[in-house]
Design a binder for these strands. Structure first.
Length: 375
DNA sequence: GAATCCCGCCAGCGT
DNA sequence: ACGCTGGCGGGATTC
């Protein structure tokens, strides 16, 4: 049986769309450097192939997983968010922590939380802390919405235009009026906007809300039979149940899969004494050093494995076939300072309120998606 | 061209 | 002052 000689590097960077184009050369260089290094090491009887299973650099090389927008959508994010919490009856959510865990901008977590607040499954505790009160809470809240008498009063503590209030209104529409709505129709019904721009904004927000509600199965996408217009349909408890079941099923599948593949997750090597790049100029250098370390680490691993194998063979006098061992290495990317849009002439007033993620989890993939398009 | 919605600016508010 | 929160709309992406 041949051993898997690949290094899997999930190299992750924050995406900045206006950077796509200026980044292309950097990526190209980085790729070359990477290959050169790998070649250098391959002399040492390690045949190292590169597997960019998530993103790769050219059409020839790629086992290619294109960046797609869906992976970063509120719907997916919300799914992940809820998945993290679904096993808890009660849990304090630390915003920093969940932000890091999901590798996403803080701002997006607010969106999800605000919408989930309308289902009363999440409540703000204090700065940075929210409280998750169990998935079953959603069932109870729906009951309350269905009951027109017990009018959920969310408006007292929230601004009228908040996502929470809008979301609550949207849910009420489904539960108390009819089960299918187009977003435009709902936007008009929820408040009496005359201004077209304001209406457009409200529709945008309803998209956000719809995506979160959809993520947990409460509503689903559909079309009006009459006009064929896209719309959303209430699914309710059945949908929630299905969401839960699917999640559990997937979890189980993943577990068995993981055992089968024998994936070892190796902690990120700490890159010390290396200046973290403050610009993309030093990006190559940094990544290069990371790669060196990873390769070194893999060499060590392999040495150990071989020694172990020999030891066992000597002991047992029986040949041992080691299972295919795939290791996933991760480079935690450095924080890259990102110049703000050149277009805007107004100087930035307040740096502190940007929602820069704590770790830049995403995505060279997106950059590379662009890169490939432009080959 | 319409539908969709990611992204991040920046105001507002609590501490 | 500071930084958390979240309203908002530009414009990219997908249909």
């Amino acid at each position: 049986m041949e051993e898997d000689q690949s290094i899997y590097i999930y190299n992750v960077y924050q995406t900045q769309s206006h950077y796509h184009y200026s980044m292309m050369n950097k990526i190209r260089n980085c790729q070359k450097e990477f290959q050169a290094r790998v070649k250098k090491f391959s002399k040492l009887s390690i045949q190292t192939s590169i597997d960019y299973s998530q993103y790769a650099f050219s059409k020839q090389l790629i086992k290619y997983k294109i960046y797609n927008r869906k992976e970063k959508s509120l719907e997916e994010l919300s799914k992940k968010f809820v998945s993290c919490l679904i096993d808890y009856d009660e849990k304090i959510i630390c915003l920093d922590q969940i932000t890091e865990e999901l590798g996403v901008e803080r701002r997006r977590i607010y969106d999800i939380i605000n919408i989930l607040e309308s289902l009363q499954v999440v409540k703000r505790k204090c700065k940075n802390k929210y409280c998750w009160s169990g998935f079953k809470t959603i069932y109870q809240t729906i009951e309350q919405y269905a009951n027109k008498q017990s009018d959920l009063d969310l408006t007292t503590h929230k601004r009228e235009k908040s996502l929470e209030v809008l979301s609550a209104g949207f849910i009420k529409l489904f539960m108390q009026q009819k089960s299918i709505w187009t977003l435009e129709e709902a936007a008009k019904y929820l408040g009496n906007e005359v201004d077209q721009n304001k209406l457009k904004t409200k529709v945008r927000r309803l998209y956000d809300i719809a995506n979160v509600l959809k993520s947990i199965g409460l509503i689903k996408k559909t079309h009006l039979t009459s006009s064929k217009k896209p719309a959303f349909q209430w699914v309710g408890k059945e949908g929630l149940k299905l969401f839960y079941q699917n999640l559990k099923q997937r979890e189980m599948k993943n577990q068995t899969q993981q055992i089968k593949e024998n994936i070892a997750i190796i902690p990120t090597p700490q890159i010390q004494n290396v200046n973290k790049p403050d610009s993309f100029n030093s990006y190559n250098q940094y990544v290069g050093k990371c790669i060196d370390m990873l390769i070194q680490q893999q060499l060590n691993d392999r040495k150990q494995q071989t020694e172990q194998k020999i030891k066992e063979q000597n002991q047992n006098q029986v040949s041992v076939i080691t299972p295919k061992l795939r290791k996933t290495y991760t480079i935690i990317p450095p924080r890259v300072t990102t110049p703000k849009k050149v277009l805007s002439n107004t100087p930035k007033k307040n740096q502190s309120n940007s929602h820069t993620p704590n770790n830049n989890k995403t995505v060279v993939g997106s950059l590379i998606g662009k890169f490939n398009q432009n080959l």
